[in-house]
Design a protein around this nucleic acid. Structure first.
Length: 813
DNA sequence: GAAGTGGATATACC
DNA sequence: ACTGGTATATCCACTTC
């Protein structure tokens, strides 16, 4: 029979020693389908140069006799073939070795230390990756599948165990041009008494899907349409499982659910000896070990939104934390419902309804955010060619690597292996190489500024100069790209390599999205364009990442070197043309228009572009009315990475200033922001100065609310590992004493208070936000407010410290 | 015990 | 273990006089 099918969730099982892919998806009518399929599993033995035909035949005979009997599996080499392949761009002869079970590829490879074999490769890919490469059944794309239904009890009766409408053994797979997909989404969120996994009771769980809203609870029976009352916690867990089963979503979505909701449910279910059988085969979620736990559900794509947001968006978000509240605010313009958390025993009778609403709303937000990010998740998954479960959790280096691995066959390339533990150690030992160029700015207030920047700068350098592990030349060749790094010249072939070639496609996608964004801007298009920019830039990071298969220090260093050369070239040309460069960082240049018009600058941009090599492209970032660069706190030089601009739509662009840093108190940040706005918007430093005086007065008169004085700093490691006991470490210790949940990664909030003891140490004045006390006037003036505006006013030769001196005289009397 | 300096730490920029 | 380097700023910890 034939069906139209979109694959969503991938798993595999072993049957009689062989591997089978078990793929769950939907057909065009929304029926849930399970495909069962197998594929060849193999790896490569790359032969030494010049091995003769006869020797190869002998070798094949030897290899074909290899058998393994480990871990209760009997695996053998099924057959071998000889192929002409490429490895790292070089033509090689290789034996393709097919084995019974993919788990034994490594074991077989280990038995092949023959002298004719130079390298063994391709034994370290997962089965699902093998399968997707072999059968080209890519996730979240439509296919026409022909296959046959299973016979009774085939594969040990898998069909009966699976909760699907149809089960097919695959015969053929053909891609379809079809896009629409009515996915079924269910968001969920639990509320518990204790934050530590499993320590408290689960009070309620909310579920939100398409036209579906529910809160299951055992705490209070309130007649509300969405509340379902059960008798105890055990029944709550059972009801939750039952509801998920009934809805049977493609995507079960949580927020931090890998780290909280799922492990919590697991812990509580274990306590009551209940099976958390969420899988379509009735299996429980499988939790991965390691630093980051993940919860995988058979047949349903469990998505932890936080993980995807961290990799795909966080760099471009203005939220201070990635809490559901702040992320919802930024993505949706909506906030969480207010609810003051207390232990359930302290919640009053009439407060439960609010708590339920709160819980439900969290799932609503999770559901809505998922809908918002869906286009990106879809695009990411389709580009990476790996299941959405993995893509949604992977970091950028893995994304780059997945992309490469799944595109190798176009180049007839054998995959490179993962580095060994020792190789990683070696790579980590190497020193840093020189990175980006940052222009030394002259402090001052400037007017009429234009900013150009390179589109996907590092990515386009890699493509243009063909930089990669496979194009790196040990010995110089006549026709090659070369550049000096650390007094040593490195060379790269001009014969196009597969890595740069692949990157080209990513950059083209990014350009396309950016164009669409220009035509009709919206937040999501922006995020998507940024997501691809991220992928392009990550390719550079990937080259220098110690865990990468295609790690190439020389290529990474050369990328930075070529980029430095390119930007310096542009700076020269801009200045030669009669403009004046005032700043530049990595891939952007800010310069003064002087007497020229915006149109002149645009024309000039065209000219510059016509002279750029390869796919390098410079674009107009924006024009700005005014901009300010300040001095460093130490020394008279202009500070790098710290400036503020205002464009002709009066929109501020602030970089590096305390305004954008969360480890400064709100008051300092807001004061600085206001001062920048006054100076840039109106060009009025007098007003700014008056404003500062006003704030200083308010601080001295204690008119400022304590919460404006809170400083937030993150705990980057376990408390015990801190050598320097800084204020936030003290605050964290205080929190632990109060049994508040503190962990690595927690954002610690505190303020600096007045104390009786005479001490110089700031850490001895630390108090928690809810601790009684008064803010320390001297500290906030001298360490927060004035430093935040000092360098800005210095541009106008105004010394803000005089405010303190003159006022001090008065207050003395 | 004050002053100066380097190290540890956090955060931002691209 | 889960991209790279560049840069600023703060406060602690130590040295020196």
């Amino acid at each position: 029979m034939k069906i139209e099918f979109i694959p969503i969730s991938y798993d595999y099982f072993d049957f009689e020693g062989r591997n089978y892919a078990q793929i769950i998806g939907r057909d065009k009518n929304g029926k849930r389908v399970c495909l069962i399929d197998s594929c060849d599993v193999y790896f490569w033995a790359i032969l030494e140069e010049g091995v003769k035909e006869k020797e190869i035949e002998k070798l094949r005979e030897k290899i074909e006799k290899i058998k393994l009997d480990e871990k209760g599996r009997k695996t053998k080499v099924e057959k071998t073939e000889v192929h002409e392949k490429n490895f790292l761009g070089k033509k090689v002869k290789a034996i393709k070795i097919f084995a019974t079970n993919y788990k034994d590829l490594h074991g077989i490879a280990d038995k092949m230390g023959m002298p004719e074999i130079e390298k063994r490769r391709g034994y370290d890919l997962g089965f699902i990756t093998h399968y997707i490469i072999e059968k080209k059944l890519n996730p979240l794309l439509w296919y026409e599948i022909s296959g046959e239904t299973l016979e009774a009890m085939e594969f040990g009766g898998i069909e009966n165990a699976l909760d699907v409408d149809l089960c097919l053994k695959v015969k053929t797979i053909n891609p379809l041009k079809k896009d629409e997909f009515q996915k079924k989404v269910l968001a969920f969120d639990i509320e518990a008494d204790e934050l530590k996994i499993g320590d408290g009771e689960i009070l309620m769980v909310s579920l939100v899907g398409d036209n579906f809203k529910k809160v299951i609870t055992w705490k209070k029976n309130i007649p509300l349409p969405y509340v379902e009352y059960v008798k105890d916690e055990a029944e709550l867990i059972e009801k939750f499982v039952e509801t998920v089963k009934k809805i049977s979503p493609d995507f079960l979505v949580g927020y931090f659910s890998d780290g909280f909701d799922m492990p919590y449910l697991k812990a509580r279910a274990e306590k009551y000896r209940i099976k958390l059988s969420l899988g379509l085969d009735g299996s429980q979620p499988k939790f991965s070990r390691g630093v980051m736990t993940t919860a995988k559900i058979e047949g349903i794509a469990h998505i932890d939104l936080l993980r995807f947001i961290e990799t795909a968006y966080s760099q471009y978000m203005s939220s201070e934390t990635l809490s559901l509240n702040e992320v919802a605010h930024e993505f949706l313009g909506e906030s969480k419902k207010d609810f003051e958390f207390r232990h359930s025993s302290k919640i009053k009778e009439n407060e439960w309804e609010k708590y339920f609403e709160y819980n439900l709303h969290d799932s609503v937000l999770t559901y809505k955010i998922f809908e918002k990010i869906w286009p990106d998740l879809l695009e990411f998954t389709r580009i990476m060619h790996e299941p959405v479960f993995d893509v949604s959790r992977n970091g950028m280096s893995t994304n780059v690597e997945d992309y490469v691995i799944h595109n190798l066959d176009k180049f007839n390339e054998i995959p490179e292996k993962r580095p060994t533990y020792d190789e990683i150690g070696e790579r980590q030992k190497r020193g840093k190489y020189e990175g980006a160029f940052v222009f030394q700015p002259e402090p001052g207030l400037y007017e009429d500024i234009a900013i150009f920047d390179f589109t996907s700068s590092y990515g386009s350098v890699i493509v243009t100069y063909n930089l990669s592990k496979s194009t790196f030349l040990e010995k110089p060749e006549k026709e090659s790209y070369s550049i000096e790094i650390e007094n040593k010249k490195v060379y790269f072939s001009k014969k196009s390599g597969f890595f740069p070639e692949m990157l080209k496609e990513i950059i083209e996608k990014r350009r396309q999205y950016k164009e669409e964004l220009k035509i009709k801007p919206d937040a999501i298009k922006k995020a998507r364009s940024n997501a691809f920019k991220l992928l392009a830039n990550a390719s550079y990071g990937y080259l220098g990442f110690f865990g990468a298969r295609y790690y190439c220090e020389e290529a990474a260093a050369a990328t930075a070197a070529f980029a430095r050369e390119a930007i310096k070239n542009i700076i020269d040309k801009i200045d030669k043309e009669g403009y004046k460069t005032i700043y530049s960082d990595t891939d952007s240049i800010a310069f003064l228009l002087g007497k020229r018009t915006k149109e002149d600058a645009k024309k000039f941009l065209k000219k510059l572009n016509s002279e750029l090599p390869g796919i390098m492209e410079l674009e107009l970032e924006d024009f700005y009315k005014r901009g300010i660069w300040v001095t460093k706190r130490t020394g008279e030089f202009g500070a790098k990475k710290k400036y503020a601009l205002i464009n002709y739509e009066d929109k501020l662009k602030i970089r590096g200033f305390e305004t954008v840093r969360r480890d400064w108190c709100n008051l300092a940040r807001e004061t600085q922001n206001k001062v920048l706005r006054l100076i840039l918007g109106e060009g009025n430093e007098k007003k700014a100065f008056d404003y500062i005086k006003k704030i200083v007065k308010e601080v001295k008169e204690r008119k400022v609310e304590l919460k404006e004085m809170t400083i937030k700093t993150q705990l980057k490691k376990p408390i015990s590992e801190y050598k320097a006991i800084s204020p936030h470490v003290i605050a964290a210790k205080k929190m632990i004493d109060k049994e508040m949940p503190v962990d690595m990664g927690s954002l610690i909030e505190y303020y600096i208070a007045e104390t009786k003891e005479k001490t110089k140490l700031i850490r001895e004045k630390v108090k928690l936000p809810d601790e009684k006390g008064e803010y320390n006037i001297e500290y906030y003036l001298k360490h927060q407010i004035l430093p935040a505006v000092e360098n800005i006013m210095q541009v106008f030769n105004v010394d803000v410290n005089t405010i303190l001196e003159s006022k001090k005289q008065k207050t003395l009397f």
